[in-house]
């Protein structure tokens, strides 16, 4: 079996890896690169737990082949905080108790970041539709929506 050589950028770092043609980006992140923050909840793009940003757009990494990452820029949940400083979204998720089990949280954070990067002042409806691709079974979404609203307000302050 011939593996594919991929050069890409993940969380700001240049990364090279070899992968099978069948491997998804999620497989590569989790099994080869040790970036297990992205979770596999379904493997079919229906839950959003594996959300990453590819060239700034939120994507299910389970629906991207590892080979497709060649030359792209990837951001995973592990890259959201800057050094030891949490991103406002991370802070607000904690402050608002927007997680219970926490397994969907990485996907929500990534999707929320994508949302706020494009729309710094979303309405509740825009937040709800913007995060519709992320399933959470613990919270009923209430505290997640409030955390995103609070983070947006915080980020608008600069």
């Amino acid at each position: 079996m011939t593996k594919i050589n991929v050069s890409t950028t993940i969380n700001g770092d240049a990364v090279d890896y070899l992968c099978d043609a069948e491997s998804t980006l999620l497989d590569v992140l989790r099994d080869q690169l040790g970036l297990t923050g992205s979770k596999e909840g379904c493997g079919t793009g229906d839950c959003g737990a594996c959300s990453v940003l590819v060239d700034g757009r939120v994507t299910c990494s389970c629906l991207v082949l590892g080979a497709e990452a060649e030359g792209r820029t990837i951001l995973t949940v592990e890259g959201i905080a800057e050094g030891g400083k949490l991103h406002p979204l991370q802070e607000k998720f904690l402050e608002f108790a927007a997680l219970q089990c926490g397994v969907c949280t990485p996907g929500f954070l990534v999707a929320s970041k994508a949302l706020l990067d494009r729309n710094p002042n979303p309405t509740e409806e825009e937040i709800r539709f913007g995060l519709a691709g992320n399933l959470c079974r613990c919270t009923g979404y209430d505290k997640i929506v409030r955390a995103v609203q609070a983070a947006a307000a915080e980020m608008r302050k600069g």
Binding site: G45, V58, L63, A111, A132, G133
Partner: peptide
């Protein structure tokens, strides 16, 4: 067609 994660692709 799908949520934001699908729309991007």
């Amino acid at each position: 067609i799908g949520p934001k994660q699908i729309q991007s692709r």
